[in-house]
Design a protein around this nucleic acid. Structure first.
Length: 593
RNA sequence: GGGGGCGUAGCUCAAUUGGUUAGAGUACCGGACUGUCGAUCCGGGUGUUGCGGGUUCGAGUCCCGUCGUCCCCGCCA
């Protein structure tokens, strides 16, 4: 069927257009049938226009309009005219006009939608994902897609202007276990061999630096076969970049400029530069996290020194065993109930601590605390000093191993902020976390693991420690954090083959293994690799935060569920046995089936 | 792998201590209506209470198992 070509979009028309004739097409969002006169709201991605069908304008169109239902696709012809006195709708952009229709074409009818196509609907995500094309048709979702388009485009333009080349790297690549689980693709031509889908373009972009590309970027799809979260999908998109002959400062400069432009142009927010810097050690001590949320206080303090002489056995024994006493002050927390404090204590136990010690500083100087008897006046004075707190506040202390105290208080801090509603809206607190340790010891496997990845350069000042005390070696890795979310991470890479070998050996990757897995990289490093480094920013997380959302699924067109299923298409699914045969694959059911 | 929440009409939800024929709003269907914009008015319930088993005179409700979905821990170089 020949359909009428539209002359305008549904959100376009304004009062000055009143004399013109137009053709609009779109979806019938709502029909208001008054018998003699019928109104419809006609929608497309630009907005909504009211169309009026009256026998006076076109009897046939009016007759056909009676058949219209929600989400029919139609074309409408008519005159744009100002709305009659008193019927202007100030709630919509086109509210001063309407289209007085003399022609109507039903291009495609629609089944009744399973849910109304509007933003206010509070729907189960399962339903949204099953009919994702309808969910995406909602204005708020189309807005998210539009933001994504504009941010991606602006990032491209920004990086282009900074001299970066956009370069693609393979999707079918080599499996490099260590790190996340790979998605594997069997090779038909090479029985028993597999490609891996990339977890990141890491090694390719490093080789591009060896090639002399100098400045590379890519909006790279990255795949990891790990469990999902609200901010983690099996596939996500990174703004991935790499530069040659650079120090961390050069990377910071580029990235800060990028977020500055994006937040200014799309959020109207001025980012204060340079962004705050914090070492990993400071972050863990003060916030109990390597991605501190700086939108609120509740900073963690070390108070072991105050209790050096404490009569409280738990404090004394913890300190003697090399543990720490840390805590935070909750402003106004003295009004917390015993029940709330018990719940918080339970929360800390589940997080791994022995317990939570609280001290309520009541009005009039009174104390309430399970350790009231052990507390001296001198200790209290110093606690008030350290936490700058006083009457009406509550102190919460944890005595434990340093790592445990950090993570428990870090989680407690986030919980308190959420429970007590201490997190301000529309605040964007960026920071760089720097000086990550290079290695972390894995107790279960009795070996070191790379904290960032195995290609991260050790801190130049700590090179000697590689031999003597690997655990204390800092790396030249950095994370960009926004509001407690890791937006991205990167590092200066190792560009010397012998340093790379050394790090491999610390990671328990022997020469043969290094050769078989990363031989191509080692070889590249020996062919004139320049000093280089880069970063990858999670585009989905960035958009989620820019749009004020709680899940990256809302900025991804067809996301997977927590079990990594696509409810729209039903993937993953079984395949034809012939396909498996082609790939030399046999299915072995898991035990018990 | 573990902990927690949810699962009743197309959608969002209700249903007393385990009690009779599982309701409401909305959507949908039929009718009326010439200025609505969440149109209104009249009429209509369209259901495998996720699935399987158990307890009971009787199960949406209790128990066991299972499936799905969401949040978190582990995991995510």
């Amino acid at each position: 069927m020949e359909f009428w070509k539209r002359s305008h979009l549904c959100g376009d028309l304004r009062l000055p257009d009143k004399t013109s004739r137009v053709t609009l097409s779109g979806w019938v969002r709502r029909r208001r049938d008054h018998g003699g006169v019928i109104f419809i709201d006609l929608c497309d991605r630009t907005g909504l226009t009211q169309v009026v069908f009256s026998p006076e304008a076109g009897t046939e169109a009016h007759l056909t309009a009676q058949e219209l239902r929600s989400e029919f696709v139609v074309a409408v012809r008519g005159a744009v005219r100002p709305r009659p006195e008193g019927t202007v709708n100030p709630k919509i952009a086109t509210g001063e006009i309407e289209v007085f229709a003399d022609g109507l074409q039903i291009i495609n009818p629609s089944l009744p939608p399973p849910f109304p196509i509007e933003d206010e609907e509070d729907l189960q995500e399962e339903v949204r994902l099953r009919y994702r094309y309808l969910d995406l048709r909602r204005p708020a979702m189309l807005k998210n897609l539009h933001l994504r388009h504009r941010v991606a485009g602006r990032a491209r333009r920004y990086l282009d202007e900074k001299g970066f080349w956009e370069i693609e790297t393979p999707l079918l690549t080599k499996s490099t276990p260590e790190g996340a689980r790979d998605y594997l693709v069997p090779s038909r031509v090479h029985p028993g061999k597999f490609y891996a889908l990339p977890q990141s373009p890491q090694l390719f972009k490093q080789m591009l630096m060896v090639a002399g590309v100098d400045k590379y970027f890519q909006l790279a799809r990255c795949l990891r076969d790990e469990d999902l979260r609200a901010d983690r999908q099996p596939e996500h998109t990174q703004i991935d970049l790499e530069m040659s002959f650079v120090e961390p400062e050069n990377i910071f400069e580029v990235v800060e400029g990028l977020v500055e432009v994006l937040f200014r142009e799309f959020r109207g927010v001025e980012v204060t530069r340079p962004l705050r810097r914090m070492t990993y050690a400071e972050a863990m001590l003060g916030y109990g996290s390597d991605k501190p949320d700086l939108r609120f206080g509740l900073e963690i303090r070390e108070v072991g020194e105050i209790f050096r002489e404490s009569s409280f056995r738990v404090f004394r024994e913890t300190l003697e065993a090399g543990g720490v006493i840390r805590g935070l002050a909750v402003p106004g927390g003295a009004s917390l109930s015993l029940k709330q404090l018990e719940d918080l204590t339970g929360f800390c136990r589940e997080a791994g601590a022995g317990g939570l010690l609280w001290i309520l500083l009541k009005e009039g100087g009174a104390l309430k605390s399970p350790i009231k008897k052990s507390l001296t006046e001198g200790e209290l004075v110093r606690l008030r000093e350290v936490f700058s707190c006083g009457e009406g506040d509550c102190l919460m202390l944890v005595a434990d191993r340093p790592e445990t105290a950090a993570t428990v208080l870090g989680r407690l801090r986030l919980k308190l902020a959420a429970d007590l509603k201490l997190i301000p809206k529309d605040r964007y607190e960026f920071l760089w976390v720097v000086d990550f340790p290079l290695l972390a010891y894995n107790e279960e496997e009795k070996r070191f693991e790379a904290v960032h990845h195995p290609f991260t350069s050790p801190h130049p000042e700590d090179l000697a420690l590689l031999e003597t005390d690997p655990a204390r070696v800092r790396s030249r890795a950095y994370d960009l954090v926004l509001n407690g979310t890791e937006l991205g991470g990167g590092s200066i890479r190792i560009h010397r083959q012998e340093v790379q070998q050394k790090v491999f050996s610390l990671l328990n990757i022997g020469p043969e293994e290094a050769q078989s897995r990363f031989g191509f990289l080692l070889e590249a490093l020996r062919h004139g690799a320049p000093p280089h480094g880069g970063i990858a920013l999670g585009l989905d997380r960035l958009l989620m935060l820019m749009a004020g959302l709680n899940s990256i699924r809302d900025v991804i067109t067809f996301p997977k569920t927590q079990k990594a299923v696509c409810l729209t298409t039903g993937s993953p699914s079984e395949v034809d046995p012939a396909q498996l045969q082609d790939l030399h694959i046999a299915f072995v059911p898991p035990p018990g089936e």
